[in-house]
Every structure is written in structure tokens, then in C-alpha cells.
Design a protein around this nucleic acid. Sequence first.
DNA 1: GAGTGGTCTAGACCACTGG
DNA 2: CAGTGGTCTAGACCACTCC
Lengths: 242, 242
Amino acid sequence: MKLRREAPTPLYMQLKNVLVADIDSGQYKPHERLMSERELGEKFKVSRMTVRQALTEMIREGILYTQVGKGTYVNDSKIKQELQTLTGFTQDMRARGNVASGKVLEARIIPATLTLAAIFSVPMNTEIVLLSRLRLSDAMPLAIEDAYIRHQVCPGILEYDFSKESLYNILVTRYNSILVRAEQTIEASLATPKEVELLQITSPSPVLRLERLSYNEQNMLVEYVISAYRGDRYKFHTTLQS
Amino acid sequence: MKLRREAPTPLYMQLKNVLVADIDSGQYKPHERLMSERELGEKFKVSRMTVRQALTEMIREGILYTQVGKGTYVNDSKIKQELQTLTGFTQDMRARGNVASGKVLEARIIPATLTLAAIFSVPMNTEIVLLSRLRLSDAMPLAIEDAYIRHQVCPGILEYDFSKESLYNILVTRYNSILVRAEQTIEASLATPKEVELLQITSPSPVLRLERLSYNEQNMLVEYVISAYRGDRYKFHTTLQS
DNA sequence: GAGTGGTCTAGACCACTGG
DNA sequence: CAGTGGTCTAGACCACTCC
């Protein structure tokens, strides 16, 4: 139960990991009080500020909460990590315990239309990669997803097999393109005839339409995705904070 | 441009407010570099750790971003505050520039059904307040909202006029009940005949169904809301972060 | 009065970027 | 090389809670 000062992982991160593991393993029950910040510092041989850095992150993530003059307490277990995370379809399905697969409908380079040029803030006819896929969950059609990516940030991306590898993985591992933030808009509408056919549903059926703009650390728009999910098989979950 | 040490507002918060105001007023352009942390500390006569506390919050809110060895930079302006905030219908509409109003359909105390008892973790038949409202935006029907609240946390709440005052306001100002977190689930489905009539839409029409569980600081469920929004007039927006 | 979290200081060393 | 943000220390005072 010691922290390693020579490790590449910062002390506050190691401490946070220890505490998270303790809570996950049930050593701390919900609403149980933690040791005080000073006691934790003494136990782990770090300064109080370092302890606070670990605790502050856990509070922000909803794992802990504090009461001035009293102490630091463990929150209900199931909350935790669920906060808005930025993932693709594959990880999303895995988190739900389903097996994700996909069928590529279209994968080619197109010149930016007026709309796309405006969205990406690039001149018209700039090369944009279009990747249109039918998304399956446990082998049943769940969504149609059209992703647009600047070809400049991922030259040669069409070489990859998108039915086997996730787009997010390819962007991160092959192009070192890390997405840190996304703006998402959700609405309900009726499925178009084409969607009815691809999703194997009956008309009229409701679909959940998602539009997502994903940005990297420099706040450059990397990816623009529009997708249509079957209304009867997909629910979107989010956590709101004050 | 000085910070007041005798003020009740912490120094790091004052500094953050100054920086936010500077950025809002356009003194810093997007992607422009800020003074270094050491320079800011010197200018405002505070320690570097205090500067970092102000900057850390602004980074978390998406206002700034850092590059190690280089500096701290201003993010694109429009991002900022938009992160997931916990608001009610009234504030939501105001933020969109619309006028919100409402018509109370039902407002009474009911005994907790099996389902409600499970959701609120209370015994069956515990008193629950049901508040059902038709929500209007610029005088046009937009949503039907059924809110369930533990009567225990808001005794006598039915005395208030919900067509004039927002539920959130009443909970905060009258009952000192502050909601800090909510879990929300969104799905698309077809409007029921009753919804078609109340929302003044035609059949078949898609609706966005929201289910929300709102918690206070002690992580107690205060409010359970299910609502149906017109698919053609409402879009739900969220920001995702890595 | 003893203990708590919230705030703040004045230093320090590191890895990293740039010229 | 000097400058940057990232991490860390060992103190300090405050308002608050509980006894």
C-alpha cells in the first residue's frame, strides 16, 4: 500500500487509483467517511496538497463529496465513471455489453460541398473522406452512420478495413489524432424509406437523429458525424451537472 | 485590476472572473497565448498555486487549454459555459431566446406505486407529488412533462402557481433543495393519441422522450421527470468530453 | 477546543518547447 | 539555453461542525 515516487505516474494519480480501487472493492461503503486529508497524507507519506489533488479529481468525477467541517464521503457506487465520455459506436456497445459490428456502405473521398466547407471551415472542393456505415448490435441493424473527416488529417485512411477496426481507434493509433471534445445534437424524426429498408423496420417508425462535431486539443474540427438510430432499440444516456 | 484580499470571494475565483471577463470582452483572441503562470502571479500579487487553481477550473470548463513547455491558450469563444448544465424547462427556453409558459394539467399528491416506490427507494404508498404540465414555447405546445417529487422534501408545494413560477426556482428558493446532478435518458418514439392531441400534431409524429432523475448533494433522488417533446420543434444539445 | 475541509504561500525539481 | 506547465512540499490561517 505504498506509492512509488520513482514511477512515471504522478503521486496524486497513484493515490487516486488506490482510493478508487478501495471503493470499487467495497472497502468503503456509500456515504462512508474517508480518512481526513491530513491522515491520508500521513499514511501515504505525501503532502496534504497532493492528497487534495487526488480528492479534487474524484469529487469532480462524482466519486466523492465533501462537507466542510465534517469530512469527505463516498458517493453511491453506480454513479462514478458514467459522466459524459467521448467514445465511438464500438466502445458504446461494448459498455452496454453488446457485440458491435458494421457494414461499410460507402467509403470514398468527396470534394467539400458548400455545407461541408462551411462546417469544416475549409474552401469548397477540399478533399473530405466520407465513410457511411450500417451499425449492427448483436448482428441486428441499429443505426446508419455517415462520418465526414478532413482527408488532410488522415491521409490514406481508406486503406483500413472499417468493418474490423473502429474509426476512433484508427484515428488515435494511426494518426495520433486525439479527440477531446464533441458537440452533439439529438432529435427525433420519422425514418426515411431508405432508412426503413436498411434498419429493417416498418413504416412509420421513429428514429433518433444524432449530429456530432468532434474536436481535437487545438479545437480543430476533425470529424462530423450524422447518424440515425432505431427508436425502439437505442436509448441515449447523459449525466447533467450543476 | 487588483484583487481584494479582504473580500469573501476567494482570490483564485476573483482571478478567474477577471480572466473570463477579459476573454469575453475580446482582449484575448481565440488561440492567443496568456501570460505565463509566474507572470500572472506577479501581476496579481498571488502565488503560482493560486493562479493554477484559477486556470485549472477554466481548463476544465473548456475556456483555456495548455501546451507543456509553451504556454496557456484561449479556446474558441463559443464553447465555454455550454457544458452540461442542470436546468429546467424555463431556463432552457430562455437560453434559446424563447418565451416559456406552461399549463398545469394535473397537480396532486398520489401514493407511490410499485414503480415509483422502487425509483425513489421508499415504501409503497409514500406520498409523492405529481405535477403534470403542458409546456409552451412562444405560446406553441412543445412538450408534456410529468414530474414526481417526494412530498417529504417539499411539503405544501402544491400551494404554488406552477404556471407562473418554475419548479426549479421553487425548489431552490422555498425549500433550499439544490439539485447538483441528474441522469437523463433520451429515446425516440411515436406520439400516443393523447400526446397528438395535447401537442397539436398529426399522427404519426415522432417525439423525443426524456427521462430524468435529479439528485441533491447527498445524492438523494429529489425529482423524477418524464417528458415528451415534439420531434419537429426541439433538439437536445450536449457536450461530450474525453 | 479539537478536528475538518477551503484557501493560500514561497519555495522546489522535472520534462518539455523554442531559439 | 531560458522559459513553460506539471508536480510536490511543509507549512499557515480561516470558517465550519461537533462535543
